[in-house]
Design a protein around this nucleic acid. Structure first.
Length: 264
DNA sequence: ACATTGACCTGAGAGC
DNA sequence: TGCTCTCAGGTCAATG
C-alpha cells in the first residue's frame, strides 16, 4: 500500500499520537527487518528518549528523537502504524513496539516483512545514500526539477514516475492515477511526450493527485469520484466515460488505464 | 538502458 | 467447509 500519500498520513499520525512522550520500552519481535542496526542499539537509542520531530522523504518516514537519532521506517507493501492502548488487541504483525508511560504503544505492523527499520543521525544523508531522488512535495520540486528528473529516460512514463532514483514516493497505484488524470497512457515512452504533456503530468501530480489523496487520508473510499484508484479492479469502469478499464502489465507492474481517455 | 522474471514474505480471495 | 491457486500497492538481482 504505502506510497507517498500513505506515508504522509503515517507521518501525521506519528506526529499526533507519539510526540514528546517518554519512550519507556521498545520491543523488536522481528529483528530481521532491522537494517544497519541491532535490536540492542535501537532500544538503547529509543528507550528513555522521546520523539520531537518527524520527516518524510518519498516512502520513508523519519522519527526524530531528543537525542539526535532518527528512527527510519520503510513500509514495504503492507506496513502501517497503529497507536493502541494496552490490553486492546495489538496489531497482528507488530514488528516494532514502542511503549509509552500512558499505557499506549505505537506499533509498526508489517505483515509481509518487506519493509525495514533503521536508525540514522541525518535523514538527508540517509536518503542520499539510498540514492533517492527529490520528493515531489518537497519545497524545491518545481517543473524544472521534474523535467530534470525525467530527462534521459527511454522507458515508459509509468516506469520513470516509479523510479525512486528519479523522484521518490510514487508507486504502482499513484502512477496509474497521475497518468489517468493527465490523460496519458502508462505505456507511453517518455521520449514521445511533448513539453506540454510533461507539464500536465507535473501539475496533475503536485497540485491535484497527491494533495487530494493526502486530504482523503489515502483512503480510496474517500477519494474524489473522478479518481481511477477506486476502480482498479478486473471489472472496473472508467469514471470519465464509463467503459471498461484496461488491465495490463506495464514495466512489470499491473496497470489500469482507459484506452479512450488516455493517449499513447 | 530497459523490460521481464523471480525472489523475498505472508495472507486474502477466487475457484473448485 | 476446505483445499489449491493466483495475486498483491515495494525493492532487488539476474537475465535477455
Amino acid at each position: 500500500m504505502p506510497e507517498l500519500p500513505d506515508v504522509e498520513v503515517f507521518r501525521r499520525y506519528l506526529e499526533s499520537t507519539s510526540l514528546y512522550q517518554e519512550i519507556r520500552r521498545v520491543e523488536v519481535p522481528s529483528p530481521e527487518l532491522l537494517e544497519g542496526t541491532s535490536a540492542s542499539r535501537l532500544k538503547k537509542s529509543l528507550q528513555g528518549s522521546r520523539f520531537t520531530d518527524t520527516r518524510r522523504h518519498g516512502k520513508l518516514l523519519f522519527g526524530g528523537l531528543e537525542n539526535g537519532d532518527w528512527l527510519v521506517l520503510h513500509f514495504g507493501m503492507t506496513g502501517f502504524l497503529s497507536y493502541f492502548k494496552n490490553g486492546d488487541s495489538r496489531p497482528s504483525h507488530a514488528r516494532l513496539l514502542i511503549r509509552f508511560p500512558n499505557g499506549y504503544a505505537l506499533a509498526y505492523d508489517c505483515q509481509r516483512k518487506l519493509g525495514k527499520i533503521a536508525l540514522t543521525e541525518d535523514p538527508d544523508r540517509y536518503a542520499r545514500r539510498e540514492q533517492l531522488g527529490p520528493d515531489p512535495l518537497g519545497g524545491h520540486f518545481d517543473l524544472e526539477a521534474f523535467r530534470n528528473a525525467i530527462k534521459g529516460s527511454r522507458a515508459t512514463i509509468k516506469s520513470a514516475l516509479m523510479d525512486q532514483k528519479r523522484m521518490a514516493g510514487i508507486g504502482n497505484i499513484y502512477s496509474d492515477e497521475i497518468l489517468f488524470q493527465a490523460g496519458i497512457r502508462p505505456d507511453a515512452k517518455v521520449g514521445a511526450l511533448s513539453d506540454d504533456d510533461l507539464r500536465t503530468v507535473f501539475d496533475v501530480m503536485v497540485e491535484h493527485v497527491l494533495p487530494a489523496a493526502i486530504q482523503a487520508r489515502a483512503r480510496p473510499d474517500r477519494f474524489p469520484s473522478s479518481f481511477i484508484i477506486p476502480h482498479r479492479r478486473g471489472d472496473g469502469l472508467c469514471p470519465k466515460c464509463g467503459r471498461s478499464l484496461q488491465k495490463r502489465k506495464i514495466s512489470g507492474r499491473t496497470s489500469y488505464f482507459c484506452t479512450r481517455d488516455q493517449r499513447g
